[in-house]
């Protein structure tokens, strides 16, 4: 049995977020803490030191923004 509770990794998105985000199953969740631009406009970030593509979507009822991410090679 695999029990996967995800992990907490450093995420930086210019003008949107800088801090620790939740990561699980190819998705990353964060609560914006920078206000330079709308999180909906974010298309890239640095996750655990690795550049990734993002497309955050706001949770309808909660504070989190969640995005699938792909590592930029």
């Amino acid at each position: 049995m695999i029990v996967d509770c995800g992990s907490r990794l450093r995420l930086d998105i210019d003008g949107v977020f800088s801090g620790t985000a939740g990561v699980a199953d190819g998705r990353v969740s964060f609560v914006p803490n920078r206000f330079g631009k709308s999180p909906a406009q974010a298309r890239a970030g640095v996750l655990d030191g690795v550049a990734v593509t993002l497309a955050p979507v706001k949770d309808a009822t909660g504070p989190f923004w969640t995005s699938r991410y792909e590592v930029l090679s």
Partner: peptide, 27 residues
């Protein structure tokens, strides 16, 4: 017959939520 996997979402990971696997509390 068996539990293959239990996974929590990224929101749970961000907030320190986990599945307890201690004796007496395991899945």
């Amino acid at each position: 017959a068996s539990i293959a996997a239990i996974r929590l979402g990224s929101q749970a990971a961000a907030l320190g939520i986990a599945v307890d696997q201690a004796a007496g509390y395991a899945p």
